[in-house]
Design a binder for these strands. Structure first.
Length: 492
RNA sequence: CACCCGUUAGUGUAAGUGGUUAACACAUCGGCCUUUCAAGCCGAAGAGUACGGGUUCGAGUCCCGUACGGGUGACCA
């Protein structure tokens, strides 16, 4: 029998989402889709001090960029709301009351100074800094979060002194912790907001979360959650701790490794669908070494069994490769529509640009475009006459060749007096001209290429000619000749 | 310091409950193709599974230890 899958992504709005967070969201989403379950977005905004304005929007944008749509929760609605923790204070308040009633929680009025002193002392004695449970048996009264705020008191969990707490991690098996290593954690802070440990458990329970897929930095706090579930007599979800994502130097992925924000990759010209594919492979494998998978394939093949436990390295080279595969599979027109923004930015194209023409351009470029942003460099000359010539290419194929001026003039005249349209027309014409001049065709080919593109690499020359057309070719040959003559006169 | 997690070619992953010469892809190198650069096709090199012990007829797969990397030890999440 298959149980109903309800999973959640629960970010805190303390900044812009990082690829690691998005990968967690993605895996939750994939699991939900695969099992016909529900993917929930919950905002964990209980830390009022670290709130960063605009982060909720940033989270939504990052998710929608990859089309990871919540079925329920923040921004999607549902029967278990509200989905922003700051709007659920009453729920935590009530559960805390029940726990105090049952003596599994208590009010504590220890000052921060006292706590600091205890911790400092324990550290000196080389022991784990833990709360000494000073208020555990004081039976201080609890009258809701308002009174907590007024008195500067907190609610703590009455954690067992001894014994062992273990849980079954789906990926790592049985993980056990000695209870003596866990202190009486704070459940509700003196500002009336719950702590992560508490709110997380309460919400997962009421939202009927079946599986918790989260980063493995939470392994250590899981026994605390388990203790909470058990003391409340709630069924705990299945825990699945995902491996961390490392940078290329095997250190935790951070800003030093370039970008960690998903939007920056979009700005670099990485397609969201390529990112989706890449991210899904960070810690998961379909089991048969396949790497280029469509969204639908990933969803249908996703399973918890395919997850790995060892850290995944964020390899930007691999990302670019996947991206280039996606680009080369698209039509020229589609590529242009995605690359347009990059070209517009450099004023290479505008609203009036002929889409048919641009589509032809990208049809030629599709196998040479690792990133959309590369189109500025690779497609520029299709939209604007070369404004600079690559030094090496210019010398090697143009100015460094004996009699080049005469050859190029001849080629120009041949083109001018004919009506070449197709790539075959251009090729035949050029070969004939070379024959008449008694030189190798490659001499003209290279000179023509530099003249019309400014560089030595790119699509087939005659295909470029067909797209660019006779008039512009003539103009560019003229420009190249001008530059050449200029050089000659200056060197004399 | 304590407690946890991890460690298969440069990189990402594969190798059902231990069973032949550890597989695939990216990257690298070489060849073919070609006017160039890619793409594509063909091929090569690259790990004996962090290290050391053990269990076993047999271990990447199980056990123990060590090293290295990481996480947690908050009135952060």
């Amino acid at each position: 029998m298959m149980e109903d899958v309800r999973v959640r992504f629960a970010p805190s709005p303390t900044g812009f989402p990082h690829v690691g967070n998005i990968r967690t969201a993605l895996f939750n989403y994939l699991f939900a889709r695969n099992r016909n379950g529900v993917f929930i977005l919950r905002i964990e905004d209980t830390d009022r001090e670290r709130l960063v304005n605009g982060s909720e929007k940033a989270i939504e944008r990052a998710l929608s960029l990859l089309e990871i749509r919540p079925d329920e929760g923040y921004g999607a609605g549902g029967d278990f709301g509200p989905y922003r923790q700051s709007e659920r204070i009453g729920i935590y308040e009530k559960i805390a009351a029940e726990m105090i009633e049952k003596k599994t929680a208590y009010v504590c009025d220890c000052s921060e100074e006292r706590l600091d002193k205890i911790r400092a002392r324990l550290r000196e004695e080389k022991k784990n800094p833990m709360y000494d449970r000073f208020c555990r048996d004081k039976n201080l009264p609890y009258e809701g979060v308002e009174s907590l705020k007024a008195w500067g008191r907190v609610v703590r969990f009455a954690s067992p002194f001894e014994g062992e707490t273990s849980y079954e991690d789906f990926l790592r098996g049985k993980v056990r912790f000695g209870n003596e290593t866990m202190d009486d954690m704070v459940l509700i802070k003196k500002d009336g907001f719950p702590t992560y440990n508490f709110a997380n458990v309460v919400d997962d329970h009421f939202m009927k979360i079946s599986h918790v897929l989260r980063g493995d930095e939470f392994i250590s706090s899981t026994p605390k959650h388990v203790l909470l579930y058990r003391s409340l007599n709630w069924k705990e979800p299945l825990f699945v701790h995902l491996p961390v994502i490392l940078g290329s130097d095997k250190k935790r992925l951070s800003k030093r490794h370039g970008s960690v924000s998903i939007e920056d990759y979009e700005k670099m010209g990485i397609l969201p669908e390529a990112m989706f594919n890449f991210l899904s492979l960070l810690g998961w494998s379909p089991g048969n070494n396949e790497e280029i998978l469509s969204r639908e394939e990933i969803i249908s093949k996703f399973s918890l069994e395919g997850l790995s436990t060892s850290p995944a390295v964020f390899d930007i080279k691999k990302l670019e490769w996947i991206n280039s595969v996606y680009i080369s599979k698209m039509t020229g027109e589609k590529i242009f529509s995605r690359a347009k923004v990059f070209l517009c930015e450099k004023k290479l194209v505008g609203e009036d640009t002929d889409v048919k023409y641009a589509a032809q351009v990208f049809e030629l470029l599709k196998t040479r475009l690792p990133k959309l942003s590369d189109s500025v460099e690779r497609a520029g000359y299709f939209f604007k006459d070369p404004w600079a010539y690559d030094d090496g290419a210019w010398k090697k194929s143009f100015s460094g060749v004996e009699e080049i001026e005469y050859y190029v003039e001849s080629l120009k005249n041949a083109i001018a007096h004919d009506e070449p349209v197709t790539k075959d027309d251009f090729e035949a014409l050029l070969r004939k001209t070379a024959e008449n001049l008694g030189i190798k065709t490659s001499v003209l080919i290279h000179a023509l290429r530099v003249s019309i593109t400014g560089v030595s690499a790119g699509p087939g020359l005659f295909e470029i000619c067909e797209v660019i057309g006779k008039e512009r070719i003539l103009k560019r040959l003229e420009n190249a000749l001008k530059k050449y003559k200029n050089e000659i006169s200056q060197s004399q």
